[in-house]
């Protein structure tokens, strides 16, 4: 699998490590460019089973089944996918199912696609409204630690499902044909 020419961002290895050390066995994802390096690592990691989803809400149900069977699950998605999960998140809430979500944000500062803004702006509040604890990572250095904390809170401390939002300033912005500006974080 190729992920393009970009170098692995520095938050990816600590995040992978955090998921491994938290005993995550099953990971469901819908790809996002910002998640591409993490996805390659997880697909190649024999200690986890990855599941390619057609829509993010499937992952919420997947995590529920995993927990019923004694496994811990994490979900990876772009902020737009949070909206696809809303009703299904009631399952985690009602049944007190622990799960961790890693969400790469679009629609924030520097976004050049206005269609990403509504769900980008609503993602954190939507999760909160559905009873998911929300942690926001605003710098590359804090992503891994926040994922570890989210896993401990939900799986070990009996907390609610938890999401770590990786802000667009960490991921970088996506540029389109005709856009001007820096290409940092492009993809």
């Amino acid at each position: 699998m190729t992920v393009g020419p970009s170098a692995e961002p520095s938050w990816v290895a600590p995040t992978h490590q955090a998921l491994r050390q938290s005993g995550i066995g099953i990971i469901g994802y819908v790809p996002d460019a910002g998640l591409s390096h993490l996805i390659v690592r997880l697909d190649e990691d024999p200690s986890v089973q990855t599941v390619r989803l057609t829509t993010e809400q499937e992952g919420v149900a997947l995590a529920t089944g995993a927990w019923l069977g004694g496994s811990r699950a994490a979900l990876l998605m772009q902020s737009s996918g949070v909206g696809n999960c809303t009703n299904m998140l009631g399952l985690l809430n009602t049944c007190e199912i622990p799960a961790v979500m890693v969400v790469t944000m679009r629609g924030q500062a520097g976004e050049s696609n206005p269609w990403q803004r509504p769900m980008g702006e609503a993602a954190g509040r939507s999760l909160d409204l559905m009873g998911v604890d929300v942690h926001s990572a605003a710098s590359v250095d804090e992503v891994g630690a926040l994922v570890t904390r989210a896993c401990v809170d939900t799986f070990d401390e009996g907390g609610r499902a938890a999401a770590v939002l990786i802000e667009q300033r960490v991921i970088g912005v996506k540029l389109f044909m005709g856009d001007s500006g820096k290409s940092e974080g492009e993809r």
């Binding site: 066995g25 099953i26 089973q49 599941v51 499937e58 992952g59 149900a61 997947l62 995590a63 529920t64 089944g65 995993a66 927990w67 019923l68 069977g69 004694g70 496994s71 699950a73």
Partner: peptide, 9 residues
């Protein structure tokens, strides 16, 4: 999908 999570676990 709950069935899939259970089957994998």
């Amino acid at each position: 999908m709950i069935g899939l999570g259970l089957a994998l676990a």
